[in-house]
């Protein structure tokens, strides 16, 4: 079955790509995209922590109820919450981006110096 180190490495690589993007990109919406990538990477990392080799989904059904083969449900609960938090922050950041664009007519963060800067 799948080696979980593989998922850990993908998660970390994705996280680092996102971090690199945040630090270098100047476009407002591009930064939001890179932050979302980072959040997905962290979610992938969290779920891989709960992954048990050849386990089954932690749900009792009429056919499956062998408790010891269950995958760890707690990281999944955490990821459930963190995905929705990610959605919340992304929605807020995007509305900020819209208001910034309406005010400064540009999405490039460097060129946003309005008159009330001084």
């Amino acid at each position: 079955m799948i080696q979980s180190t593989f998922f850990y490495t993908t998660a970390i690589i994705l996280f680092l790509i996102g971090l690199y993007g945040v630090l270098t990109k100047r476009n407002v919406i591009k930064t939001i995209i890179t932050l979302t990538i980072m959040e997905t990477a962290v979610n992938l990392f969290l779920v891989t922590i709960g992954y048990v080799k050849n386990g089954t989904a932690p749900i009792f059904t009429s056919t499956i109820s062998d408790v010891h083969k269950f995958v760890d449900p707690l990281p999944q609960a955490l990821v459930l919450t963190s995905i929705v938090i990610g959605l919340g922050t992304t929605a807020l950041m995007l509305s900020l981006a819209i208001r910034l664009y309406k005010k400064y007519k540009t999405l490039n963060y460097l060129e946003m110096d309005g008159e009330d800067e001084k």
Partner: peptide, 22 residues
Amino acid sequence: ANEVTSIVVNYRGFDTLGEVTV
């Protein structure tokens, strides 16, 4: 029956309350 729901709402319901507020 769904273990994840039992954690999300029952054992750690306070997080979900926080989550809904977020």
